[in-house]
Write a protein that binds this DNA or RNA. Structure first.
Length: 1016
RNA sequence: GCCCGGGUGGCGGAAUGGCAGACGCUCAGGACUUAAAAUCCUGUGACCGUUUUCGGUCGUGCGGGUUCGACUCCCGCCCCGGGCACCA
């Protein structure tokens, strides 16, 4: 095929790459510098109150068994560049790293291989750390944290106890100690909840008081339907369930009731929403959080049930359409239609004169409801959502529309969800697509109450969901939607028929898991049925060393099997609202038997606060020294970089915890992460895929179904498969050599047959596709500096971009050229020269001849301005995280150096100085080669170079002259020229004169130093 | 359906109202070499004319607008990526 390939195969022992790179050999220098940095603690940062701080944070990884992939170093390199730059620029920079090591994958692997998850975790962490260190990141490893270390999770448990001890006061809009709530109840300043009956605080016994307080704690226990995953043997948070399947593993998930710990994140919904405003985050990320919190403004409206004492409350965002509400719909799980309770409203018999369709073929409403509910329960959430056709059944009952006293039928339908609002809606078919569809299916009347035009009663096609003007709505007629909403809400509130209501979509956070590998809850269950927190002195509550950590197969968590661990005796002390348990031996006076909580915390717990522990990782008395917190967290983390997959989970949870800690006076800032950037996904190398039928006949990609799937082919490699559009025949895609492909118009086709269009795209890296790039391999072949450089050179940090091995070669060649420019290449000619003030220049100690000095002076003058421009460009680009253009600038500068005969020492050192954050090993090596014995231990210790703005512009410049906006010529002007002089030069230019062709100039435009435009 | 982001050479990308395509890859030609690799130099958006110097036209998804001047700003549309989605 290619001669080179053949030759390489014939001579397997000759490493051509090593031979050709003569001087630059990354593998021989990178380990050395990593060791020197480490030994000299170049990158450790201690608090220095007088010095400005800068806190750079990476989302710490989950140390999986797979090791790093090239996606990890992308964000880490970006933060490392900022870290090294900011440190050089005079900031006290903290840049820590740690491990988010609890969680399902390690445990699943542990079960499969019968190895303890702690062993697996330790091994994975060792591997990850070694991989990260091989890339030369400037982490302060003395601050390393590990969420599975008892000395770490002791404080996770401690923070959980703070949440348990906190209630949210809506009046002050902040979290407060639970004792203050008890005090307010005791003094009567705050009314007791309905669950207290009509008793006063002092009339309740201690047990009852505790029950009341539990309704307010931010951590609470509840029997609730949860997402149970049989395959994983655990429940999952809503966020961990995607399309009815577990996010980890893709196993089916079903709803089951279970006793669970919850965190009351809903109390902070408004604070979490408002806090977004001031954050320097991307708009799309803020939007994702806003959507997740899902605030909507509307009203609760009460509908009386006809011929009954009951009523039903609905939530609506369109109270202005109340006159058009022609029926109500309840979710199948709504308590008012629960046939097992007395209070259900379903009639025993069908009313007369109802459409046949409403009966759904059943003998009675109860029969119909029972059948419908059974069917709804058997369908998964996913099935219910996929099927948009409207079904339902009539309850036989009627409600009364409070504004016009109209009797309206009440239906049950699964298009209303019990989990949102009140689980009941007023249906306005004229102005809601779903209600419209249902009304059509059930032959219900549709009454317009909004018109798109103020002067027309029936403008706009139904269903009209957009705002307009009220019609057929009595006193609201003519009002705009916004005004009508206000007016009707006033009316409802006056008449006690309803209230304005802000509703949030966000649910409370399901905080327990039935797994072994997580933080144990610091909680004790007493035999009488109440729960008591452990005293702080009992922490950390460590996981029992068990042999059998597998799921029990039932809904009991694995810790159930650690009998000796969970069967304990405790003594209690403290006031009722602050009762605490200490574990004692069975014979201790006052000891009562009790059981530990068997659930563990979810993986998100440890990552909710790790950024705080970094500031004081070894503190045994506090989760973090307040002085250190105040210093490092002033204004929040200065730069936080991580994947967008954490947009709503980790980032919302940790903001929530942070706000609670802030309310309790434990941290000084209200928001943890001031500036946040998501790095874009790195895809596999671009591929061309050509499809062929089983007969071998090639088919154009336009002729097959665009929904591809993959399978493992006979050769064990992943193949893309699809179906032929017209015949349905199997079409198999195979990678084809780029040389076989050419571009025709907007598409790629085979050179051999232009009728066959091929698929051109990059795929997400995956094992099955076999396109995963391992950073270790890249380092082995090109070195860590090239890996770092290419990760940044590919394109903007936040963008999705495909990997390219040829691109790595490109940056590798750049580093080789830098090496050769500064130390000489194959020719061995050393070109760096140094002036000595007395007109003498030396090159490696040798004094230059007069003729050479002349050349050196000319070279120094030629490179001076580009050097200042380089420093300015790299500085500005790092500040705006535009690393790809900073690297381009360095390449340009290096190309300019290559054209010189002699390289002035300061130009060389300044290049190395700005290169250091990007490619620190080669920078340090070359710096030491050029600097001699007086050199600093590391180039990283040198200050960031400054630049002179006046030396960033050339004395003369070429500017274009346009005529009517079209290029007509270019002229050379002095940078000092004024407008008149510039026009004189332009109008004297023969090319311009020629193009003007004696036309009269109507207008002359000069943009200083940029261009001229002559309008004729 | 709704909400964000994006669309520029063969490819990754640069330019945020002022010379479109910096820088890198790819490819082609040349130098060095017995030869190849590496390295260095030159060229590389499309089309047209001269076919050498050089000159011209078009060109940033499509259509319109604002402006002396638009990849950039405004209006409408198409396509791609991401998020949300029976959320009342």
């Amino acid at each position: 095929m290619w001669p080179g390939t053949a030759f390489r195969i014939l001579c397997p022992h000759r490493d051509w790459r090593k031979e050709r790179m003569a001087g630059y050999n990354p593998s021989s220098i990178e380990k050395k510098w990593q060791r020197i940095w480490q030994e000299n603690r170049i990158f450790s940062a201690e608090m220095q109150p007088a010095k400005p701080k800068y806190y750079v944070l990476d989302m710490f990884p989950y140390p999986s068994g797979e090791g790093l992939h090239v996606g990890h170093p992308e964000g880490y390199t970006a933060t490392d560049i900022v870290t090294r730059y900011k440190r050089a620029a005079g900031f006290n920079v903290m840049h820590p790293m740690g491990w988010d090591a609890f969680g399902l994958p390690a445990e699943q692997y542990a079960i499969k291989t019968d190895t303890h998850p702690a062993v697996i975790t330790r091994k994975n962490i060792e591997r990850f750390r070694a991989q990260l260190q091989a890339i030369g990141f400037s982490y302060d490893w003395h601050r390393e944290v590990n969420t599975t270390d008892p000395q770490y999770y002791r404080w996770t448990q401690w923070i959980f106890l703070q949440l348990y001890d906190t209630w949210y006061d809506p009046r002050q809009q902040k979290g407060r100690p639970i004792a203050q709530l008890a005090a307010e109840f005791a003094t009567g300043r705050r009314a007791l909840p309905p669950s207290a009956g009509n008793k006063s605080w002092s009339q309740l016994d201690a047990h009852q008081q505790r029950r009341v307080l539990e309704e307010y704690r931010l951590a609470y226990e509840i029997e609730a339907p949860v997402n149970w995953c049989q395959a994983l043997g655990t429940v999952l948070a809503n966020e961990e369930v995607i399309d009815g399947k577990s996010e980890v593993g893709g196993f089916p998930v079903e709803r089951r009731p279970m006793r669970q710990w919850m965190l009351r994140i809903t109390a902070y919904a408004q604070r979490l929403l408002d806090g977004l405003e001031a954050l320097d985050w991307s708009e799309s990320l803020k939007m994702m959080q806003r959507n997740w919190i899902g605030r909507s403004g509307g009203a609760l409206v009460r509908f009386a049930i006809a011929d009954s004492a009951s009523e039903v409350t609905v939530f609506t965002t369109r109270p202005d359409t109340l006159f058009g509400a022609s029926y109500l719909v309840l979710a199948p799980e709504h308590p008012l239609v629960d046939l097992n309770t007395e209070m259900n409203i379903i009639s025993a018999a069908w009313p007369t004169e109802i459409p046949e369709r409403w009966r759904s073929g059943a003998g009675s409403p109860r029969e119909a409801a029972a059948a419908y509910q059974k069917n709804a329960a058997s369908r998964s959430e996913r099935q219910r959502q996929e099927d948009n056709t409207k079904t339902g059944t009539f309850t036989g009952a009627y409600a009364v529309n409070p504004v016009n006293n109209q009797r309206i039928p009440i239906f049950i339908s699964d298009y209303v969800l019990m989990g949102y609002g009140t689980g009941a809606i007023m249906a306005v078919p004229a102005h809601d697509q779903r209600d419209f569809d249902f009304a059509n299916a059930m032959e219900l009347p549709i009454r317009r109450v909004v018109s798109a035009a103020a002067d027309q009663a029936d403008a706009g096609k139904l269903p009209l969901e957009s705002p307009g003007f009220a019609v057929n709505s009595a006193q609201l007629d003519g009002l705009s939607t916004a005004e009508a909403k206000n007016r009707i809400c006033e009316h409802l509130e006056q008449e006690s028929l309803g209230t304005r209501q802000i509703h949030y979509k966000i649910r409370d956070w399901l905080f327990s898991r039935q797994r072994y590998w997580g933080e144990p809850f610091p909680l004790i269950h007493l035999q009488e049925g109440t729960t008591v927190p452990l005293a702080e002195s009992e922490l950390p509550l460590t996981l029992p060393e068990v042999k059998d950590f597998k799921p029990t197969g039932t809904m009991e968590p694995p810790l159930f099997k650690a009998t000796a661990w969970h069967q304990v005796h405790v003594v209690l002390d403290g006031p009722p609202e602050n009762l605490q348990a200490r574990v004692v031996s069975a014979g201790t006076p006052g000891a009562v038997p009790a059981r530990r909580e068997l659930n563990t915390m979810p993986q998100w717990a440890g990552s909710c606060w790790y950024y705080l522990r970094y500031m004081d990782p070894a503190n045994t008395r506090q989760f973090c020294d307040p002085e250190k917190e105040k210093y490092w967290m002033a204004g929040g983390v200065d730069l936080y970089v991580g994947g967008v997959e954490h947009a709503v989970l980790h980032l919302l949870y940790s903001r929530f915890w942070h706000k609670v800690l802030f309310d309790r006076g434990l941290v000084s800032s209200d928001e943890p992460f001031r500036k946040l950037v998501n790095q874009g996904l790195i895809l596999g190398e671009a591929e061309y895929t050509v499809f062929a039928l089983e007969s071998g006949q090639r088919v154009s990609v336009t002729d097959i179904d665009p929904e591809f799937s993959t399978r493992v082919g006979e050769n064990g490699k992943a193949e893309i498969i699809s179906r032929h559009k017209s015949t349905g025949a199997l079409a198999v895609g195979q990678a084809c050599d780029p040389a076989m492909v050419e571009k025709r118009g907007d598409v790629f086709v085979l050179k051999a047959d232009n009728n066959i269009q091929v698929d051109a795209r990059s795929f997400k890296m995956s094992k099955s596709r076999g396109n995963v790039v391992n950073p270790d391999d890249v380092i082995a072949e090109y070195g860590a500096d090239s890996l770092r450089l290419f990760e940044m050179f590919m394109g903007p940090l936040e963008q999705v971009k495909p990997w390219s091995t040829a691109g790595v070669e490109g940056v590798y060649r750049f580093l080789q050229r830098v090496w050769r420019n500064l130390l000489g290449g194959d020719d061995g000619v050393f070109r760096v020269v140094q002036p000595h003030g007395d007109g003498k220049w030396t090159c490696q100690g040798r004094e230059l001849s007069a003729a050479e000095v002349e050349i050196a002076l000319r070279d120094a003058a030629a490179i001076l301005r580009p050097m200042h421009r380089l420093i300015r460009k790299v500085t500005a680009d790092i500040e705006r995280l535009a690393f790809n253009t900073a690297i381009s600038a360095m390449m340009e500068f290096n190309n300019a150096l290559a054209k010189l005969t002699f390289v002035p020492l300061d130009a060389a050192l300044n290049l190395l100085r700005v290169l250091e954050p990007f490619a620190p090993h080669i920078a340090d090596e070359l710096y030491h080669e050029l600097s001699g014995p007086d050199a600093a231990v590391s180039i990283a210790l040198l200050p960031w170079p400054g630049f002179d703005e006046s030396l960033c512009v050339d004395e003369e410049l070429d500017i274009p002259v346009q005529i009517n906006g079209k290029l007509a010529g270019r002229i050379r002007i002095a940078v000092t020229s004024d407008e008149q002089q510039v026009f004189n030069i332009a109008l004297a230019d023969p090319q311009v004169v020629n193009r003007l062709a004696q036309r009269a100039i109507k207008k002359k435009i000069y943009i200083k130093g940029r261009m001229i435009n002559l309008v004729v």
